[in-house]
């Protein structure tokens, strides 16, 4: 960024902090007013927050150990079935581990993978999307062809192949998913940039002498951020599903670390008799994905400036 562009960001410090805090507060109030209107979105948001809190506070929520087998309590049914007890509210698995505890700890893996992958993918995707859409021409053609190539591979097969090469483990799953994940925010951003760059305010910035980087990051980016946030939120759900699928196939984190996909896979053998072993982790996946999707839709409405007064 040029010297002059830096100046506009550095002006009386205290003033600026107070003003931007105020602005954030009012825009948050406005956001909440619109978000609250969508009841399903509020429910979705609550589900997501519940999962996040459970994952963070896992050791305080449950006293069981998620990994150590307990051969005295193998395949106990949930509390409300005969033979069940409230010590193991959702029952235990084939190694006697509490299913609820494992679901709560499993949320850590799922959410961590989801957030990290989507965060990095968004950063990379937004930058490449901005460049691709703003400059167009050859740069655009190259980036778009790379994306087309990646799209030609089914997501899961590409990720499986990569994990097979890199070896299992949390870090490698993240890398394997990132390999393709960035193209989604990239394509959305590029499309939005193509629209935004034709707006008159962009031309106006140019007539007063602003440079490309200033226009890209200060004029265009704020206008496409909302849709980017929505898309990324929805992508978290997909990534969680991908991680669960990889774990289910044994390409994810290694047992005994609890992950929802592994738990479903392990319970599969007992599905006819001890159905709860794989059903509850499956429901956890369902609710997490549902919550995120509901939240994403609410965000879409609440962040749309056209709907704002």
């Amino acid at each position: 960024m040029g010297k002059a562009e830096e100046i506009i960001m550095a002006e009386p410090f205290q003033d600026k902090v107070i003003r931007s805090l105020l602005r954030m507060l009012t825009s948050f109030q406005e956001f909440w007013r619109l978000y609250r209107k969508n009841r399903m979105a509020v429910i979705g948001g609550a589900i997501v927050i519940a999962f996040v809190l459970l994952a963070i506070l896992a050791p305080y929520v449950t006293s069981h150990d998620p990994e150590t087998p307990n051969f005295l309590a193998i395949r106990k049914p949930p509390a409300w079935l005969s033979g069940g007890s409230w010590t193991y509210p959702l029952g235990t698995d084939h190694l006697g581990r509490d299913i609820l505890t494992r679901i709560i700890y499993g949320a850590r893996v799922s959410l961590l993978v989801g957030f990290i992958v989507v965060c990095f993918a968004t950063i990379v995707g937004v930058i490449l999307g901005l460049i691709s859409g703003y400059f167009g021409g050859k740069v655009d053609a190259v980036i778009q062809r790379v994306i087309d190539t990646l799209l030609a591979f089914p997501y899961l097969i590409l990720a499986t192949a990569l994990v097979a090469v890199l070896g299992p483990g949390l870090r490698n799953i993240i890398i394997a998913l990132l390999y393709k994940e960035w193209i989604y925010p990239c394509r959305v951003v590029r499309g939005e940039v193509l629209v935004a760059k034709e707006q008159e305010y962009v031309e106006a910035a140019r007539t007063v002498g602003a440079g490309d980087r200033y226009i890209m990051f200060k004029e265009i980016l704020p206008n496409i951020l909302a849709s980017t946030i929505v898309v990324s939120t929805l992508r978290v759900a997909t990534v969680i599903l991908m991680e669960a699928s990889l774990s289910f196939l044994g390409m994810g984190v290694e047992p005994p670390t609890p992950a929802w996909g592994i738990m479903v896979a392990e319970g599969r053998r007992f599905i006819n008799t001890e159905w709860w072993i794989s059903t509850f982790p499956g429901l956890a996946i369902l609710f997490a994905v549902l919550g995120i999707n509901l939240m994403g839709e609410g965000l879409r409405d609440a962040l749309d400036p056209k709907l704002r007064a």
């Binding site: 002059a4 506009i8 602005r23 305010y201 106006a204 007063v208 602003a210 004029e219 400036p305």
Partner: peptide
Amino acid sequence: SLNPRRTVEEIVGLPLAL
């Protein structure tokens, strides 16, 4: 011709700063 995400100060101040 006015960026909906920027305040009047930022809009009018941009040419000044530049």
